[in-house]
């Protein structure tokens, strides 16, 4: 494979054909701030925070490092007065949307941002799109980026609680500004977006202890969507806790019953 000669912040390094600037920078321990990038998902370049300068041929240009594939020998500058100037504006805009994110607050201090410059929107969502991409990746089909331009926002289809959510919580985990919440109440799992219920997923009841656990996922469908047609979906009726305890009891009985450990009627293991 062709090896590219890249000058990364003044240092000569080599890159693989098609490697993104972000990948290369990380390989060489060069820090580029990112917000909408996840190694598990395809880059979407939504937040623009990773903007760097690249010179391929004659003219320098600003590109997003997370999705810019290197195809030619080039010079990359990840931190310079120009780059910082551009990034500062981006952080100011993001801060206007979402002033509560500690991540952004830290960056704002670092870049000396003027937080009075843009009227705060207090939307709390930076529209990075990570949640929608994660949702799609787990075949959840619940969150989407609706609208466009300044009106773009995360929403469920027709603004209604989704029927296709599998209750995995990937969106909750991945949101860089912790805008999405998940709660298990009244035997159902709820994903809460913009303070509104985005989906409800029924939780099964453990046949052993009666507690609600894990969501009831239409696994058959999920597996089909993943192209795993033949594997029969597992169907748990006992919660993980009980299943662990039951297994421990079973094993304990098999090996230690002869020593009289299991004397009580309940069959409860009394040895720690």
């Amino acid at each position: 494979m062709k090896v590219l000669n890249i000058v990364l912040n003044g240092k000569a390094v080599t890159a693989k054909m098609g490697q993104t600037i972000l990948e290369l920078a990380r390989e060489h321990n060069v820090f580029i701030p990112t917000l909408c990038d996840s190694p598990a998902l395809e880059a979407a370049a939504m937040c623009r925070l990773c903007t760097v300068q690249v010179i391929e041929g004659k003219w320098p240009k600003f590109v997003t490092a997370c999705n810019f594939p290197l195809r030619r020998d080039a010079e990359v500058v990840t931190d310079s007065p120009e780059v910082r100037h551009g990034r500062k504006l981006i952080i100011e805009l993001l801060m206007a949307r979402c002033p509560t994110s500690p991540e952004l607050q830290r960056l704002a201090v670092d870049y000396g941002c003027d937080l009075e410059r843009f009227a705060p929107l207090n939307d709390d969502c930076v529209v990075c799109g990570l949640c929608t991409r994660a949702c799609e990746a787990v075949t959840g089909r619940t969150l989407s980026l609706a609208g466009r331009g300044v009106a773009i926002h995360v929403d469920t289809a027709f603004q209604k609680a989704s029927e296709y959510c599998i209750g995995c919580g990937a969106c909750v985990q991945i949101c860089p500004v912790n805008k999405i919440a998940m709660e298990d109440v009244d035997g159902e799992r709820r994903i809460i977006l913009h303070g509104k219920i985005a989906s409800r997923v029924k939780l099964p009841q453990c046949t052993s202890c009666g507690k609600h656990f894990g969501p009831v996922i239409d696994l058959q469908q999920v597996m089909e969507r993943m192209g795993e047609h033949k594997i029969p979906p597992p169907n748990a009726s006992v919660c993980p806790e009980c299943s662990r305890r039951n297994l421990a009891i079973k094993l304990g009985k098999r090996y230690f019953e002869q020593y009289g450990v299991f004397e009580d009627e309940e069959g409860q293991a009394n040895a720690g």
Binding site: L145, A157, Y164
Partner: peptide
């Protein structure tokens, strides 16, 4: 209409969220 969009999503096997994205775009 919502029902028509849902039906479309089922028949052509495109997630409803995708069609909604296009419809709002």
């Amino acid at each position: 209409p919502e029902a028509a969009v849902k039906y479309l999503s089922q028949v052509i096997e495109v997630p409803l969220t995708k069609i909604y994205e296009v419809a709002t775009f």
